[in-house]
Write a protein that binds this DNA or RNA. Structure first.
Lengths: 207, 207
DNA sequence: CACTCCATCAATCATTTGATTGAGAGGAAA
DNA sequence: TTTCCTCTCAATCAAATGATTGATGGAGTG
């Protein structure tokens, strides 16, 4: 254990040295904040260093290149999504119940970590050109979509959803609608709720 | 005699001078091509000038600042979407028929102008920080969504769609799913077709 | 022809920005 | 203490990048 002292993010930071891992975490956090403010496009190594309270060279010591920096951010995002996805157990639930759980997860993430999707969007955008980012970010989305597809498959089997439902297509619609609504700055929370309700009506089995 | 030569890249530009409007159009076109290649982030005034075949100073003569340049691109995108949206008449069609027309428009745009959505995505992304871009791009999306909402309203009235359909929410789902599927690089055309079919089943009235 | 304006260019400026270098402080191990 | 490794910084570089300046040729007009 090397660093029981500082940890104060920026203001005073009396302690002199920090372990490498902690620094990398702090760097990722600062980078994410800047991405939220100015976008990936406006991400500057100097700004990160300033926010963490270290020298540019020190930043480069911990994260050698900017590309690695972006990859680090992508990693930190993935970790958070992964953790969130595994919080609620889906065991023994019907398809519809699991869909509701999925919606709850979505609401919770939107409420408590709204910056996550902003960063994720920027990363997806960059993934089109950056293979390293794509390798981290695209599987993340596929995982999310796959989870919806599983839920729909289960729900068709247990009678929650329409028999003629196409699980893959429905999963694509659901994730697409959710991520798009999340991304847009001009969507009110109530409209999101309407969309969630409408998604349920769209896929549910009718008597 | 300084510039009898250049113009090499653009086949339609044998003469020396071009009218201001034509230049601006050429600049917008070049900028869009570069955005597709490298993203808004990789857009450089020099690259644009080189592609158009003019000097950087000349570029700045026509488009004073980079911000204005981005706004110009946004304008050109809007014009194209607007033109596309008004091509097919919706008169006298049922809600379902109009939905099909909307799907056709989507397929056509995806097929013939796939770069449009790439640029639009970048612009939407930037709209979060750039009010000038937001003023052009956000209304564009609202228009699209509004068109879907109108179709759903009509379709509910004429019996094409479910009576309990929420037009606004359905429009949000439809546009969200479509734009998201368009944006993602890893969605196959067949999956898009599946999604379109599923969207129809999701909203249609059941006997 | 004389005058004016549009469009253009070469050259250059002033910053920004990612990255590097070389030196040094502090702790742990020998 | 000496040695070695980790972590840190001031100083600096080289490239890029948006923007500006001053001058020039040509078209249109009176």
């Amino acid at each position: 254990m090397k660093s029981e002292d500082c940890k104060s993010l920026d203001p005073t930071a009396p302690g002199k040295r920090e372990s490498g891992d902690d620094r990398r975490i702090a760097v990722a956090k600062a980078a994410r904040a800047i991405i939220v403010e100015k976008g990936l496009e406006g991400l500057r190594t100097r700004d990160i260093a300033a926010r963490v309270g270290i020298n540019i060279a020190t930043l480069h010591y911990h994260v050698p290149t900017k590309e690695a920096l972006v990859a680090l951010v992508a990693e930190s995002i993935r970790a958070e999504f992964r953790a969130q996805a595994l919080r609620n157990s889906r065991e023994g639930k019907t398809g519809l119940e699991q869909l509701h759980l999925e919606f709850d997860d979505f609401r919770e993430t939107a409420r408590e970590m709204p910056e996550l999707i902003i960063i994720l969007t920027e990363l997806v955008e960059r993934a089109r050109r950056d293979a390293a980012v794509a390798a981290i970010v695209l599987p993340l989305h596929r995982f999310w979509r796959g989870q919806f597809a599983d839920i729909f498959r289960l729900g068709i089997a247990d009678g929650s959803f329409r028999p003629d439902l196409d699980p893959e297509a429905a999963a694509m619609i659901a994730t697409g609608a959710l991520s798009d609504s999340w991304r847009r700055p001009d969507t009110s929370p109530s409209l999101v709720e309407q969309a969630l309700a409408e998604l349920e009506r769209a896929f549910i089995r009718r008597p």
